[in-house]
Write a protein that binds this DNA or RNA. Structure first.
Length: 435
RNA sequence: GUGGGCGUAGCUCAGGUGGUUAGAGCGCCAGGUUGUGGUCCUGGAGGCCGGGGGUUCGAGUCCCCUCGCUCACCCCA
């Protein structure tokens, strides 16, 4: 008998069930099957290009992100999960992938060029909305040690190949160059002076931005601001010779690989570490306002910022939730769950269910069974729902004869009697037939 | 951080202007079929109607507060 909590006036109130924190989600089976397949697809594409998996801690000393991403960025300034460790040192949950990977490079100094891929949660304290979470997940790559524009092309093509592999078609690749420490400061000054003349046309929130980071005014969505910045000088026209050459080589390379990229001179990404090439993939199928499915760029100064030797680098992050959202919107990358090879129905005491499922599994077959001595009808129902190809039925008759009744559940074939010794071979053969 | 919308069963949702014991579909469990699932029939379990306070003879319904979810702004994956 199960102990029932007494109901009535004196009964203690059951505690309210806890919920996952705001902006976080559980991914249950079978939805988790798509995650496994998505990550597996990304891993295989990255490893094909000689990127190796990196696992690094989910939290870092907060200064890794402060120095890397930038004190003035929105993410570090007001969204980072930051807390004091028990010994008082400030830690932070990773808000994005790149800074940790670069920190790991500086710490271990593997031979260059060094190419790594990752899959990781990322944490930002934002107000959640459609396809925006406090914990989201990214796959990504980082490549350090080469400033060759062909490396930019390689990195971008991995992302593009990944989207193609999933079946996505309705997305756009936007690309821009942020220049470098030679040409960008001059452009920023130029832009600031032009925008100061037009400050009356800009929305108020940009006024202080003009001082700190005039570039960010360019990506404002408001029509008035866009109007005021349409004929403003463009960063791509102010690049120094090396940056201009690099950028055109990148564009040539993408064209050679038949990857369509549109120049977006307003593309100004939010982390301070970017230089030269920046890019972003946006889904046209997602109706929610958050349609950026991936983005990245070159960060030639970042390794130095984190205390390493001058080392160029480039990478991207792709948001798993948003990519799956785009797949849903396009009706691609459907969920398909792998079938069980067999479900053992035992109405003769249960010993056979125990032993036969173990044998099937040791033989590399996928098998399940029912517990708690359920009725045959109930067990058959579970067998059906499990998606198994066949039910292996063992009752007193079979037990006495040393056989199993093999009942197909997905086809109209007849039920057959199989010797217990042959069951594994027969089930394995059925699996092969299916392929 | 700032606004709008919504909270009723495991899920999706009904419940005109307050009025007996709060409903449906799906799902779950059992039986019909004591050895056969998927169809069908019958029955059953499962609800502090998000929480608290107020108005009222009476609140799922009206008012206030609060929490949660959600969409949008900001920003980003």
């Amino acid at each position: 008998m199960r102990a029932q909590s007494a109901k009535g006036p004196g009964a203690p109130r059951p505690a309210e069930p806890p919920q996952s924190p705001k902006g976080t989600h559980d991914i249950l089976w079978p939805e988790s099957v798509r995650w496994e397949r998505l990550i597996g697809t990304f891993a295989s594409l990255s490893e094909r290009a000689a990127y190796g998996l990196i696992q690094s801690p989910l939290f870092e000393y907060a200064e890794v992100f402060r120095r890397g991403i930038g004190e003035g960025s929105e993410v570090v300034g007001k969204e980072m999960y930051e807390f004091a460790d028990r010994d008082g040192k400030m830690l932070a949950l990773r808000p994005e992938g790149t800074a940790s990977v670069v920190r790991a490079y500086v710490q271990h100094r593997p031979p260059l060029p060094w190419k790594a891929w990752y899959v990781t949660p990322a944490f930002r304290h934002e107000n959640p909305q459609g396809l925006r979470y406090r914990q989201h997940h990214q796959v990504g790559v980082e490549a350090l040690g080469a400033s060759d524009p062909d490396l930019d092309v390689e990195v971008i093509s991995i992302a593009d190949d990944f989207f193609v592999a999933l079946g996505l078609r309705r997305y756009e690749l936007k690309i821009n160059s942020m220049g470098d420490e030679v040409c960008r400061p001059a452009y920023v000054e130029l832009l600031r002076s032009v925008l100061l003349e037009r400050r009356a046309e800009l929305c108020d929130e940009h006024w202080e931005r003009l001082e700190a980071n005039p570039l960010r005014v360019l990506d404002c969505k408001r029509a008035a601001c866009r109007e005021a910045t349409t004929d403003v000088p463009r960063l791509v026209d102010s690049l120094c010779e090396p940056c201009a050459t690099h950028f055109s080589r990148v564009r040539e390379g993408l064209a050679a690989l038949e990857i369509e990229a549109v120049l977006d001179h307003r593309l100004v990404r939010g982390f301070d570490y970017y230089s030269r090439t920046t890019f972003e993939f946006a889904s046209a199928a997602i109706t929610a306002s958050q349609n950026g499915i991936g983005g990245g760029g070159r960060y030639d100064g970042l390794v130095e910022m984190l205390g390493g030797p001058a080392t160029p680098g480039i990478g991207f992050g792709i948001g798993i939730e948003r990519v799956l959202g785009a797949c849903d919107a396009e009706g691609v990358f459907p969920l398909d769950t792998p079938a069980l090879d067999a479900f053992v129905v035992d109405v003769a005491g249960g010993a056979c269910a125990r032993d036969l499922t173990a044998e099937l599994r040791r033989a590399g077959l996928r098998a399940d069974r029912a517990f708690d001595g359920r009725s045959m009808k109930a067990q058959m129902k579970l067998a059906d729902r499990s998606g198994a190809r066949v039910a292996l039925i063992v009752g007193p008759d079979e037990l006495a004869a040393g056989t199993v009744s093999l009942r197909p559940l997905r086809t109209a074939s007849d039920q057959q009697i199989v010797a217990l010794n042959d069951v594994i071979a027969v089930v394995a053969a059925l699996r092969e037939d299916e392929r």
